[in-house]
Simulated assay, not measured.
Amino acid sequence: MSGSQGALLLKKQLNDIKKHPVDGFSAGLFDDSNVFEWEILIMGPPETLYEGGFFKAKLVFPKEYPNQPPKMIFLSQIWHPNVYTSGEVCISILHPPGEDAYGYEQASERWLPIHSVESILISVISMLSHPNDESPANIEAAKEYREDKEAFRKKVARCVRRSQEE
């Protein structure tokens, strides 16, 4: 699929999300002339430490989309085992397609062209609800999540408060 076909697919997905909004997030373009960079707002999932938060993020799609995954980067500060300190989200479906060189993930868990913006964002919301501390991007957050839940909870609460003020 060429970049123009990827652009058409992204426009369709954006229209679908606008027509049929999904609870938990909103999505749009930063700039109407660039369909490859999306502005995302994720609402902290109910009954999680992130509840009440409004976390800004961006999805950056490669020209090879949908054959290659986008990158998702939180612009709001967020403390989570599966989010690098840079804000980049680290979950299986955003990893390049094919076999994992380390044998941790199966190819079926990694990026597949059938994933959509909606399925990515639902996976990120699920990640917020259920951190995977077995394969962390942020080792310090994962260690704290396992060993000092109260300190972890306090850091997340600060992130939630900051996100409400942005």
Rank of each mutant, 00 (worst) to 15 (best):
Q5I: 02
L121V: 08
E88W: 02
V124C: 07
G52A: 08
P96G: 09
L121W: 08
H115R: 06
N67R: 10
G87H: 04
Y102V: 04
P69Q: 05
Y104I: 15
K19D: 14
A151V: 12
E37M: 07
I17M: 11
F74W: 12
P69C: 06
Q106E: 14
F61A: 04
K18D: 08
I93E: 01
L112I: 07
A142K: 00
I139N: 04
F74G: 05
V156C: 10
K19T: 13
Y145N: 01
G3N: 01
R162D: 15
I42V: 12
R110I: 11
L10D: 04
S4Y: 03
K18Y: 00
K154N: 03
K149C: 06
V60E: 15
S123N: 05
S108Y: 05
K11E: 13
G44L: 08
Y104T: 15
N132L: 00
L14F: 06
D133L: 03
G98E: 12
L10P: 00
P81H: 00
P66L: 10
P70K: 07
H20C: 13
L41K: 12
K71C: 02
P131A: 08
K58I: 06
P113V: 04
G28S: 12
R110C: 03
I73F: 11
G3Q: 02
G53D: 02
P136V: 11
Q68L: 03
V83D: 01
S163L: 07
K149L: 09
H20T: 13
G98P: 12
I42W: 03
G3T: 10
S119K: 10
Q164L: 13
D16F: 01
A27T: 10
I93Y: 05
K155A: 01
R146A: 09
E166S: 14
L75C: 14
S76T: 11
D148W: 02
A27D: 07
E134S: 06
E150F: 02
I73A: 06
K58L: 04
K155W: 03
I73T: 15
A7N: 12
C159H: 04
Q164S: 13
N82K: 10
A142S: 12
I125N: 08
D133E: 14
E144F: 08
E64L: 01
Y65E: 00
N132Y: 08
S33F: 02
A7G: 13
F25H: 06
P69R: 07
S86P: 11
R162V: 10
V117W: 10
A157Q: 15
F54H: 15
H130D: 15
V117E: 06
S92C: 07
Q68A: 10
I78E: 06
L49W: 11
D16I: 05
D100H: 05
K12A: 00
R153K: 15
V89A: 11
E150D: 07
R110L: 04
F152D: 03
E105A: 11
L29N: 07
S108P: 10
Q13S: 08
